[in-house]
Design a protein around this nucleic acid. Sequence first.
DNA 1: ATTTTGTAGTTGCATAAACAACTATAATTA
DNA 2: TAATTATAGTTGTTTATGCAACTACAAAAT
Lengths: 150, 150
Amino acid sequence: MDTKHIISTEDRHNLLTGRIFMHVSRFLGQQFKANDISLTREQWTILVVLWKQDGVSQQTIADETGRDKPSTTRLIDNLEKDGYISRQPDAKDRRLNIIVLTEKGKALEDKIMPVANKTLGTLTHGLTEAQLLTVKEVFATIYENIDAHK
Amino acid sequence: MDTKHIISTEDRHNLLTGRIFMHVSRFLGQQFKANDISLTREQWTILVVLWKQDGVSQQTIADETGRDKPSTTRLIDNLEKDGYISRQPDAKDRRLNIIVLTEKGKALEDKIMPVANKTLGTLTHGLTEAQLLTVKEVFATIYENIDAHK
DNA sequence: ATTTTGTAGTTGCATAAACAACTATAATTA
DNA sequence: TAATTATAGTTGTTTATGCAACTACAAAAT
């Protein structure tokens, strides 16, 4: 009888399954679509990095979004194909692609972010600052635990 | 100046990006591999349902794991191909596939769950019961918010 | 009893992920 | 300086996701 634990093993496993994230991801994608935004959630995460700081390498984007390089390469392929960004060779280091937003890519921010913010508001409705802070702390600890294990 | 909010908009967005889940998912997959378990994390979530209750329909599995039917169909295809489960026609309702574990599928539980539990322990190292409870509550609220929006 | 509506499962298509193996270039070091 | 090692990015392969459209069967309505 696991009386010491108020959170059951099953509950704990729910943290690993990623079910909540699948739901959030689907919901966000649906909100994008409902607002005539033909971006995937994944592409959006790339653009968020660039809206914060335009002109960074693919590796930087990979690091910021937590993806590996191949996944990043292909997301950037699609974003470039759709005309939101372009690859520019770095002047000093010829290994680097510097990713810069096109006008189309820059203009998208004002259209998407209100939708993203509204969606975020819907998702977090009824949650307190304290609860969100705890989630942030928990996520940070999990990151540390993963890093510590490498 | 967003002084009312101790959690920044950027922090809030981190909840939506799913970055933490990507890391957790990758880490779990690596732990499986390191322990000679040739299952994907996704296949594992299906088997967890069956180990809890053997002989349920594909739709039940889809509901329990939060996937749509096509994704579930294909995961079950692969699990069946690898000999962990089999599809059985339901006696009363000919629309249903009842999914049952094979002996190979049953035997896997004892091999995998220690790895999953150990991984879970690693990930949650240093977290308190109270923190985990809050995360559970937050996830529950987010589920409700999504449902309420349909 | 027949029609209508709902449910279970599958298939097609586009997008994305992880891992391994690869090329090109830069930085280190011998 | 030449050889080694590290870094940036790409490509190939397998697996998984979401959505739409479809088939088969069951339940409800007329």
